[in-house]
Nucleic acid binder design. Structure first.
Lengths: 199, 199
DNA sequence: CTCTTTTTAGTACATTTGTATTAAAAAAAC
DNA sequence: GTTTTTTTAATACAAATGTACTAAAAAGAG
């Protein structure tokens, strides 16, 4: 029998090499040879796992999706409502290097998804994950009586999602810094959270 | 003397060809030959106006910027405060084909600007134009007494900007439709505009 | 060890890429 | 008409690209 290789691990390894290339040169810098060189593989070995360049990009998107969605869905509330919600939302903002990397990739793939249906399909769950996170937040707020009176949970989820993605994008474009983003987010939370003295 | 050619017009013509290529194939589809074919020019003629591919992309970004900023800064208020503000903000959302095209390009260039400082520099004014629009709105609201009490004009400008850009992005990604976007925008306006009976 | 299958390396090939060069065509000044 | 300069077309070329192919290497089963 042949050498036993963890295919899942190999594909992850390759996907991460794709990431590094994208972060350095953008999606346009992704070529079979570039990725192989980045991973220190031969093009032949790479081709053994990925038949085409498209599969390579798909795999990189999928890995990003898995990680992001896992992070979004694993977070739990604790602390005061405002602190908890703020902490959850901060998972989306590129506040540290890891999340900035994820954000850069998310942005690159989002732009590519506009002209590449295949990427769009694989990128969709990232949007859905963030949206579900926002829906979960506003629904739990409504149930706990923390949602500011008169606000609709679903509409507020959409608004929160647009705001947080817009902020994230502005940060990725380096036009808004961390402090301004948090100030903006806090201003929003003030308006949607009803302050309860004892919770 | 030579044939008299309107260089500005030529460059505009070429930039629009670049746009069409980007809309069809993404930024990665832009090559000297592709653009020349799209414009029905020879590569030699194209090269007479643009020495390198980078200049070609720069020119396309600049044209986008000029148009977008012109649209943003030309709008004037009229009608009730809410109607006027809504109308101005709707200039940013991709609600018709022209603005969707602009939006698609804006998105493509924004993503590219993360790894290409040159594009970033030329793309910056588009961000600034939208931000100034938001600042103008919130400041005029504050001066006219329409801003909901307790809100800071500058913070609200940043929040409005993030929200509108996030909504625009979600629409461009085809994950949010026109109706949901307007519902979300209206929910936001309700919270930042103080309803004055007589204005 | 021998066999069998996976994994890898290296190379090949047709396209496409950015850029440069060349010479022809066009058009106004004289 | 001739001259002069811009504009255009066509081609050239090295480099990079996606994909395919071939044979060597690796590693467990018998």
């Amino acid at each position: 029998m042949p050498k036993v290789v963890d295919h899942v691990e190999r594909r992850r390894e390759l996907a991460e090499a794709v990431w590094r290339v994208i972060l350095r040169d953008g999606v346009e810098g992704v070529s079979v040879r570039n990725v192989a060189a980045e991973a220190e593989w031969s093009t032949g070995a790479l081709r053994h796992y990925f038949g085409t360049k498209e599969e390579l990009l798909s795999s990189a998107t999928q890995l990003l999706e898995e990680r992001a969605v896992a992070r979004f869905t694993s977070k739990q509330y604790d602390g005061t409502p405002r602190e908890a919600i703020r902490a959850v939302l901060c998972e989306i903002l590129p506040l540290d290097e890891e999340r900035r990397t994820e954000g850069d990739l998310w942005f690159a793939f989002a732009a590519r998804s506009l002209v590449d249906p295949r990427i769009a399909k694989e990128h969709g769950p990232v949007f859905d994950g963030a949206r579900e996170l926002c829906v979960r937040i506003t629904q739990q707020m409504a149930e706990g009586g923390w949602l500011y009176p008169g606000l609709e949970p679903d509409v507020e989820a959409a608004r929160l999602h647009a705001l947080i993605d817009g902020l994230a994008m502005h940060m990725l474009m380096r036009r808004v810094d961390e402090q301004e983003a948090l100030t903006t987010l806090d201003a929003h939370l003030v308006q949607i959270i009803r302050d309860v003295q004892q919770y």
